[in-house]
């Protein structure tokens, strides 16, 4: 009798027509009794539903074995120190190159000044010689005219 009633309730259940009370009766029957083989799929179904309900509200975590990366993640402070050092080296290199370039320009200017000075002195000394020769020639001409 009870078995017939359960089968009827199961039919209602699969048609989604049972009440919560009727579902509870079916569940209790399947849990407490050892149903015949025909009802075994229903028993497993209600067992699974029960398991899912027990998990309700809990966080399910999944874990997987992940290989550690070869390079460990560096702390921000270390990264900043390295970046600052690289920037410092780059800035120093640029400064040194521009400083060297300025020095080279100054050296070249000094070199040209030396050469210009030497030519100027040479020109002045030659003018002095020319001037003296002209005076000597003038004196010589005057002497010849007087003679």
């Amino acid at each position: 009798m009870e078995k017939d009633k359960i089968e009827a309730l199961l039919e209602k259940y699969w048609n989604a027509e049972t009440t919560l009370e009727e579902e509870r009766v079916v569940k209790q029957y399947l849990e407490s009794n050892d149903p015949e083989e025909k009802l075994m799929p229903e028993k497993e179904w209600f067992g699974a539903v029960s398991d899912f309900k027990s998990l309700e509200g809990k966080t399910v975590g999944f874990s997987a074995a992940i290989d550690k990366p070869l390079i460990k993640r560096m702390p921000l402070a270390v990264v900043l120190k390295i970046a600052a050092s690289i920037l410092l080296v780059i800035a120093a290199s640029f400064w040194l190159v521009s400083y060297r370039s300025a020095l080279a320009e100054r050296d070249l200017a000094l070199q040209k000044k030396v050469e210009a000075d030497l030519f100027s002195i040479s020109k002045t000394l030659n003018q002095a010689n020319t001037g003296l020769n002209e005076i000597i020639k003038f004196k010589s001409d005057v002497k010849t005219q007087n003679d």
Binding site: K113, D117, L118, I121, S122, L125, N126
Partner: peptide, 27 residues
């Protein structure tokens, strides 16, 4: 040398500076 409100003084320091070498530079 003096030129229009500008003066320039050049000093060459050495052990034995030959003036004739400098004079003959232009030539």
């Amino acid at each position: 040398t003096l030129n229009k409100g500008h003066i320039s003084v050049s000093c060459f320091i050495g052990d034995n500076i030959d003036m004739e070498s400098i004079r003959s530079l232009v030539a």
